[in-house]
């Protein structure tokens, strides 16, 4: 575009122009949250792996005792929130890349939201129940 096509010079910065724009009209918020949740999961990975290791081959009573203890319950809930949010954004990117029929795309994005929220809520509810029972 030549300068003749742009009589008025915009005072908006490049960041200001992209904010609240893009296909989802939400600017770069998903990009940021994808990375925020990724960092959270990297930090939580070692404690979560240790918890799962502790429960290998153990019975339900022991699993209930460990998963229901407050620090571990908090770690697990944080990990579930981060992973559900992360996977919801990631799957939406995949859908937007490969599903080109508009109605099918919207339906897929809706299902993706339902799935992610349902998995997260079911898992969190289970952990809260384990905590309350201890």
């Amino acid at each position: 575009m030549s300068t003749a096509d742009t009589p008025k010079r915009s005072m908006r910065t490049p960041l200001g122009r992209v904010r609240n724009l893009g296909a989802a009209h939400s600017g770069t918020s998903d990009f940021w949250r994808q990375r925020l949740t990724a960092v959270a999961m990297v930090l939580l990975m070692i404690p979560v792996v240790v918890v799962i290791m502790m429960l290998l081959g153990r019975n339900q009573a022991y699993a209930k005792q460990i998963l229901g203890s407050l620090p571990i319950a908090i770690i697990m809930v944080l990990f579930i929130i981060a992973s559900a949010w992360h996977m919801k954004i990631g799957m939406q990117v995949v859908i937007e890349d490969y599903v080109h029929n508009e109605k099918l795309k919207l339906a897929s994005i809706m299902l993706n939201n339902f799935f992610s929220i349902a998995v997260a809520l079911a898992s969190i509810y289970a952990i809260l129940q384990l905590s309350a029972g201890v």
């Binding site: 998995v119 898992s123 289970a126």
Partner: peptide, 11 residues
């Protein structure tokens, strides 16, 4: 789904 199944089963 497996993670959710495991946690629900534990509960």
């Amino acid at each position: 789904l497996m993670l959710a199944w495991w946690l629900i089963a534990a509960a």
